[in-house]
Write a protein that binds this DNA or RNA. Structure first.
Lengths: 99, 99
DNA sequence: TAAATAAGTTTATAATATAAACCAAATATT
DNA sequence: AATATTTGGTTTATATTATAAACTTATTTA
């Protein structure tokens, strides 16, 4: 029984290996809560793109999305979950194997 | 004339924001020279995928690819260019804006 | 009341990543 | 010697992604 070589580079979670999703998670990791408009502004993304990516993060259980109102206007609020936080930490750790 | 807000997150060079291409550049950044088979093994990639990604890095001028022989067998040798090294450094720097 | 704005969602498209299939030459097997 | 296998790749096909354009619905503003 030989020693298998340990993989040199760690897998990069494809859900986080996306510029916009990574930016979103990065923001939520330090803010704990942010709404759609704030995220759109800080990430300089289009609403369409952001909407799609939030949906993916939400499906993966990395964030929670709450659709409510601020006065009469719709307001979508996002929070990172523990799963999401862990995934973010793992992603950062995995990246280190590339440097 | 107002102060424009500085973009919070830096752009991630799409050429390097790819697991396999990043692994290749990472290897070449520290090795200065590596052949196809070595890269395939260290990155645990398929030959087809590697071939495509080497071609992209080469087209971008990030690496130089030399096709020769080792005895009678084909041997493809790769080296990082200064452009490639700079791009890698910039990529790492840009990533920091996400952490 | 019409036009513009806000806050998103849905849909279309182009680019990507990836593996499967293929190829030519060298080596090993019978 | 003929055939099969391995080596070192390339080309092609496919499924997934990332992204913006187009659309929707409600709310202000003129």
């Amino acid at each position: 029984m030989l020693l298998e070589e340990v993989a040199m580079f760690k897998e990069l979670d494809p859900l986080l290996h996306s510029q916009l999703r990574l930016a979103v998670i990065s923001l939520l990791a330090s803010l704990e809560e942010a709404d759609f408009v704030y995220l759109r502004e800080k990430t300089s993304s289009t609403a369409g793109n952001l909407s799609v990516q939030l949906e993916k993060l939400s499906e993966a259980g990395y964030i929670e999305v709450e659709k409510g109102y601020s006065g009469k206007r719709p307001r979508t609020t996002c929070r990172i979950t523990e799963t999401g936080r862990k995934a973010f930490e793992d992603y950062v750790e995995a990246l280190k194997s590339y440097f």
